[in-house]
């Protein structure tokens, strides 16, 4: 029973929500959205931390450490680059009156 609940709450529910949320996104935001979602997929960093933080310095630990580095690049780079892009999207009102 708990398994079914977990499956529903942690997989099917977000899948449906993700699908609905993105369905009506304007083209304008496709890139930042993709890159933001991409940063979220770096959530695998948590799995990597769990592996890397365990006792004993064996091969699995090494893999975990590399995974933490990889996932961190994904997370930090992804969110920063998305912010950089979104910062550029402006409407007339916010534009500084240069012209």
């Amino acid at each position: 029973m708990t398994n079914v609940l977990v499956l529903f709450g942690a997989v099917i529910f977000p899948f449906v929500v993700g699908y609905i949320l993105i369905s009506r996104v304007p083209q304008l935001l496709h890139t930042p959205l993709m890159s933001g979602a991409n940063a979220i997929s770096g959530i695998t960093i948590i799995g990597a931390m769990l592996i890397a933080g365990r006792e004993g310095g064996n091969f699995g630990y090494l893999l975990g450490m590399i995974a933490v580095v990889f996932a961190t690049i994904n997370v930090v780079g992804g969110f920063l680059v998305t912010d950089r892009m979104l910062q550029m999207f402006k409407k007339k009102g916010n534009k500084n009156p240069q012209e």
Partner: peptide, 29 residues
């Protein structure tokens, strides 16, 4: 989707959740 599967492997809910969210978002895009 890979992150979601990894969530199952290490038994972590938030990993499954966020992974599925991104997986669905990517598919619709």
């Amino acid at each position: 989707l890979a992150a979601c599967a990894t969530g199952f492997v290490v038994g972590n809910n938030i990993l499954m959740f966020a992974g599925a969210l991104v997986g669905a978002a990517g598919l619709i895009l």
